[in-house]
Design a protein around this nucleic acid. Structure first.
Lengths: 186, 186
DNA sequence: CTACTCATGTAAATAGTTACATGATTTG
DNA sequence: CAAATCATGTAACTATTTACATGAGTAG
């Protein structure tokens, strides 16, 4: 682990930022590849500063408000680049509460199981629409050297995953429904 | 959160088990919907026992070795069933170290990025094969009331996700390669 | 002047991993 | 009899979440 470190270093490698901006960037720009609350980011920045991987300068915005603008150091950059070119192991199975619930769903009345599946389907469909609206903003595939090219790849993966989720949920609903109808015919 | 609780209650609702067997069941039978080490499971069992949601009886295996065979109580069952029929929110974006790495990969030489993608592809292909071997053991779709029916649904989802991952990684490789060739032609 | 966003932290609790620790039983 | 698996735990550390706490700047 210790991945948050690289999320921060990677972002600062592109552009200097405040802790607040890092929080927003992880929330929105990282396209769901990582997440962290500000309460985790500020202490991490403190520790990275102590280790000499990042540094900051205080800027005054308005008349009083102090902002710490963080940037990556040479040491930080070389640490980041080492991680960036490393072959990573397969990520362990994702914990997914709904999948767990579905796994145990044979103890539910058949209609209830379908209800839960349809609820999840609606949620995933909404998310898929949201992602599609974002990806439609690319009017062409950006050049490989551009950071936008990676954005495009990662976003494409997110869309593909949501499409698969929707398709899978529909298949589950169909299977449940089909068998529900069969039993009602008897 | 507190999902581990329901993973345990759900398994004990099907069958009584020792902590050791629960550990194995979460590792293998849950088909990747949850995971936990024994060092998390034993304390959780202790706490569930204190809350009266599970109970255990000591069995002697061989001549000395004591096993605690856990079973769910009525209170535990009603707690579990309440969770089991609850509409769950969309699960937050999965943290994925490789996706994060790819997101920052525009700072790598193009060949290196392809190398990382191919490494991931190989890992996902191997996993897909493993899942396919498991799903092939079902010679028909089990009846809805059977626990095996849920196994089948969840497993189907896992296969679909791996297929999507492989397809997505191949698309990424193609896009990178295509543009690499283009630039070499110049 | 009010509501919203910018801005930075800490505290407490829960969740999860890795390492430590031990010993019995079974299978080859 | 050696190796693998069964069996149960604790300790220390790391990661993450939720809640607490505060205050400035900006736009309507």
């Amino acid at each position: 682990m210790g991945t948050l470190k690289y999320a921060i270093l990677g972002l600062l490698n592109r552009q200097e930022m405040t802790g607040y901006e890092l929080t927003k960037a992880i929330e929105h720009s990282l396209l769901g590849s990582w997440r962290a609350k500000h309460s985790q980011i500020y202490p991490e920045l403190k520790s990275l500063t102590q280790k000499g991987l990042v540094k900051y300068e205080v800027e005054i915005s308005g008349t009083v408000l102090e902002k710490k603008v963080y940037s990556i150091t040479e040491e930080g950059r070389s640490d980041f680049l080492h991680w960036e070119s490393k072959k990573l192991p397969l990520q362990p199975n994702t914990k997914d509460e709904f999948r767990l619930q579905l796994y145990f769903s044979s103890c539910l009345p058949p209609e209830k199981r379908i209800e839960l599946l349809e609820h999840q389907l609606a949620l995933h469909q909404a998310k898929l629409q949201k992602l599609k609206r974002i990806i439609q903003k690319f009017d062409a595939i950006p050049p490989t050297e551009e950071p936008y090219f990676s954005d495009y790849l990662v976003l494409g993966g997110a869309v593909a995953r949501e499409e698969t989720s929707c398709h899978w949920l529909k298949t589950c609903i169909d299977l449940c429904q089909q068998r529900l109808n069969d039993s009602q015919k008897d």
